[in-house]
Amino acid sequence: MIVHDFSNETSILNQFILEMRDVSIQKDSMRFRRNVERVGEILCYEMSKTLEYNSKVIKTPLGEKTVNAPTSEIVLCSILRAGIPLHHGILNYFDSVENAFISAYRYHPNGGDDFEVNVKYLAAPSIEGKTLILADPMLATGKTLENVLKALKTHGIPEQIHIISIIGAKPGIELAAKIFPKNTHLWIAAVDNALNERGYIVPGLGDAGDLCYGPRLD
């Protein structure tokens, strides 16, 4: 897997990540969702540089101009719930893509730290031969992405896979690298070293779904 880690680069992306991590700012759920969206816009812009382009001649009011236009067929798949604002951010730049949604959540069968990832819902077009973008804000253990990849196999084999995440942990990134094809690209704003005993990223930012939309109702 090819990892594009923006942790050590200096850009306005740093400010958005700062606000999402800061406990005194992240309580503003509207601002938190907007920052998720803005990070999605920045990361997908960087990703767009790797897509396929062809020259296209267009007419202007005063003549003609040749421009390079993207030709990749893209399916954008977001993991609910926290993936929704990230999905919107990517759609702000890729407004003609096909859309897919999948519900994947942690289930603690014994009430302890061990958990399983349950996939309950999937709505997706064919991804056969297309470019698949997976929007998963928090790449913690990598188990969610593993189960999502398994679920999507019934919809075809994509030509290219891009994962867009806000914050990831090294153990989760290492697992994803083993599971996904070698030419998969991971676009990530920040990478933290560790997970706690419940599999959450440390220092991370907490539960992104709860911060976006409030505690999950069972």
Rank of each mutant, 00 (worst) to 15 (best):
P203D: 02
A151M: 08
D113L: 06
L149R: 09
Q26L: 13
K153E: 14
S24F: 08
Y107C: 10
S11F: 10
E174T: 10
Y93R: 08
L91A: 09
T50I: 11
A190P: 02
A177C: 12
H108Y: 13
A69T: 15
Y105P: 01
V97M: 09
T10E: 12
K182R: 11
N54C: 09
G156V: 06
D22L: 11
K143H: 08
N183H: 09
G112H: 06
P181V: 10
L134C: 03
R31M: 13
L175W: 07
P181S: 08
L43G: 00
I17Y: 01
P70R: 11
L13R: 06
P137C: 12
A135P: 02
L175D: 01
L122S: 08
V3M: 04
A169G: 04
N92E: 13
G89A: 10
I102Y: 05
L211I: 06
P85R: 01
A194C: 03
N8T: 08
I188C: 03
Y213I: 04
E19Q: 10
A189F: 04
I173Y: 00
P215I: 14
L211N: 01
D210G: 07
P171T: 07
P85V: 01
H87G: 05
A123S: 15
S24I: 06
S11P: 03
H108D: 09
E37S: 12
G199A: 06
N196D: 15
C77M: 11
